[in-house]
């Protein structure tokens, strides 16, 4: 949260998350390099440089695959939400693993000519007009640039500075990066793969990502938030009795924004559904100690005024609300962030 920026906002959960991630990466590299050379077709004599490059490349692909599975899994089943909590650290570590892979490649395949190795990487293969023998390195370079931008802009400062919508647009390049990585592998190492264990792992991982995203999006289309009906500027949300204590009902407003109407101690308040931090779905969170808690990263807001508790300074827009014939209605125009709104009593 805000107050003062610090390099990394550690807490116990993040320490545990990062420690587990580090152990998993170390374990993967150890197994790849020392335990399973015959399974992964490394029984042929290859030098340590190539062996390391393959290990870090495979690790980066697997990490990226897991990262991209977390989002749809959390949407399909809320029990996966804890994995979402510290996904940014996961991404930063993936970028480091990918750089190491690129470093081994550059310092072996492109390092022994009179040319600069970076130039050699760009001009060694320029057969862009054909699929077989396509310069797959270009896809790797593109994916690496995307990963570096995402890792370099992962600090909370960037989110506030760029605004969450712009930040999220930049970070949507992770999808392009993943497709580029799949192309990098498909037109690269997959062309030379004699052992099918790797082929099955690679295709299985990529298709899992594809399937989970498509399924989660299809499910959201079927059961997602509905558009509220407009009545002279007031949007019909639902019957007042439908909102459970401590929870919210989410509706889409005519301008495309989402509003979350919470019930707390028998009274109703409406706030923006978008958390000020990463635009997480506040309406899917619950009220803890009088504060709406974002299910993504735990940011909290007072439901009556959209303000984070002191000393934090985050604010979200609030909405005016009324009850007409037992129906909850929200005014379509949001109040500026942090505007107090008197709670409306639910009729008995």
């Amino acid at each position: 949260m805000s107050v003062k920026y610090i390099p990394v906002q550690w807490n116990r959960s993040k320490w545990v998350y990062d420690a587990l991630m580090l152990i998993a990466v170390t374990l993967f590299l150890y197994v790849f390099l020392f335990v399973s050379p015959e399974v992964l077709s490394h029984e042929a004599p290859i030098n340590p440089q190539v062996h390391n490059a393959r290990a870090f490349g495979a690790c980066a692909f697997l990490m990226l695959t897991v990262i991209l599975c977390i989002g749809p899994l959390a949407r399909i089943d809320r029990r996966f939400l804890p994995l979402l909590y510290n996904r940014r650290h996961f991404g930063v570590m993936t970028a480091f693993v990918a750089i190491t892979h690129a470093g081994y490649i550059l310092n072996w395949y492109f390092a022994f000519s009179n040319s600069d190795k970076y130039e050699a990487l760009l001009f060694a293969n320029t057969s862009y007009g054909q699929l077989a023998g396509f310069p797959f390195e270009a896809f790797g370079i593109f994916a690496l640039i995307c990963l570096l931008i995402l890792a370099a802009t992962s600090h909370d400062f960037w989110m506030k500075f760029l605004t969450p919508p712009v930040w999220k647009r930049i970070h949507a390049s992770i999808y392009l990066a993943y497709v580029a990585v799949v192309a990098h592998v498909s037109l690269g190492i997959l062309q030379d793969q004699q052992n099918h264990v790797f082929t099955v792992i690679f295709i299985g991982g990529a298709l899992t990502v594809a399937g989970l995203h498509a399924y989660a999006a299809w499910q959201e289309d079927r059961r997602g938030d509905e558009l509220g009906a407009d009545q002279d500027g007031w949007i019909d949300i639902c019957d007042a009795s439908e909102i459970e204590e401590g929870l919210a009902k989410i509706k889409i407003l005519p301008n495309g924004e989402r509003v979350a109407v919470f019930r707390h101690e028998g009274k109703l308040n409406a706030i923006s559904n978008a958390c000020a931090h990463q635009n997480g779905p506040l309406g899917e969170g619950r009220i803890i100690d009088c504060l709406v808690t974002c299910p993504w990263h735990g940011f909290q807001y007072d439901v009556r005024n959209g303000r984070s508790p002191a000393p934090f300074t985050e604010k979200i827009p609030t909405y005016n609300l009324r009850i007409e014939n037992g129906h909850v209605q929200v005014h379509r125009d949001a109040n500026p962030p942090g505007t107090p709104v008197e709670p409306v009593e639910v009729p008995a």
């Binding site: 969450p164 919508p165 495309g256 924004e257 978008a274 000020a276």
Partner: peptide, 14 residues
Amino acid sequence: RYKPRRHNHRIFAY
């Protein structure tokens, strides 16, 4: 600041 890009994500998801 409060316009989540959910529709963008939907395009990517498909």
